[in-house]
C-alpha cells in the first residue's frame, strides 16, 4: 500500500467519504422524521404527557432507570412499566408516592420526590404514552424489561 497509495488519495477518501455519508445520514434522518408518526404514539401526546416528560427530566429519572433501553442500568426499564404494572396508572402513582424517605436498609431504593397528586398523574400518563410507542420487534423482549 505504500508507493501506489498516496497521501492525496487518502485525503480524498476522507473528504469524499465524510461528505457523502454525512449527506446519507441527513437524507435518512429526513425520511425517519417523516415516518415517525406511524410509530411514535404522538396521537396520545397530551398536555399532561408533555408535563410528565418535563417532570421525568427535572427529577433526573434517567440517572437510575433506562427508558427504551437508554439511561443508567441501576433500576428497572420503564419503557414498558405501564404493562408490567398491570396497565394501571394508579399502580405507578402509588409506587412513586410511597417511597420511604430514608430508603430501605442495605437495598437500592427510589428517593421520595414529594410530587403532588397532579404531578404523579402527569408522570404516570407520560410512562403510559411511552409504553404505547411502537418499537421494532416490540422491544423490550419481555415484560421484565
Amino acid at each position: 500500500m505504500r508507493e501506489t497509495f498516496t497521501k492525496g488519495m487518502a485525503r480524498n477518501i476522507y473528504y469524499g467519504g465524510a461528505v457523502f455519508f454525512f449527506l446519507v445520514l441527513i437524507g435518512l434522518t429526513v425520511d425517519t422524521v417523516n415516518r415517525l408518526p406511524e410509530t411514535d404514539n404522538s396521537q396520545n401526546m397530551t398536555e399532561l404527557v408533555i408535563e410528565g416528560k418535563r417532570l421525568w427530566e427535572e427529577n433526573n429519572c434517567i440517572g437510575c432507570h433506562t427508558l427504551l433501553g437508554e439511561g443508567a442500568y441501576f433500576a428497572p426499564e420503564l419503557g414498558n412499566v405501564y404493562t408490567r404494572f398491570g396497565e394501571d396508572t394508579e399502580n405507578i402513582k402509588a409506587f412513586i408516592k410511597y417511597r420511604p424517605v430514608e430508603g430501605i436498609p442495605n437495598r437500592r431504593s427510589m428517593p421520595q420526590f414529594n410530587l403532588t397528586d397532579e404531578q404523579l398523574e402527569a408522570l404516570a400518563q407520560f410512562l403510559k404514552y411511552v409504553d404505547g410507542i411502537k418499537t421494532a420487534r416490540n422491544w423490550p423482549p419481555n415484560v421484565q424489561g
Binding site: 425520511d31 425517519t32 415517525l36 410509530t39 411502537k134 421494532a136 420487534r137 422491544w139 423490550p140
Partner: peptide, 10 residues
C-alpha cells in the same frame, strides 16, 4: 435507533 421507535431499516 434499533429500539426507540425509529423505522425498521435502521
Amino acid at each position: 435507533f434499533f429500539w426507540i421507535g425509529a423505522p425498521d431499516y435502521w
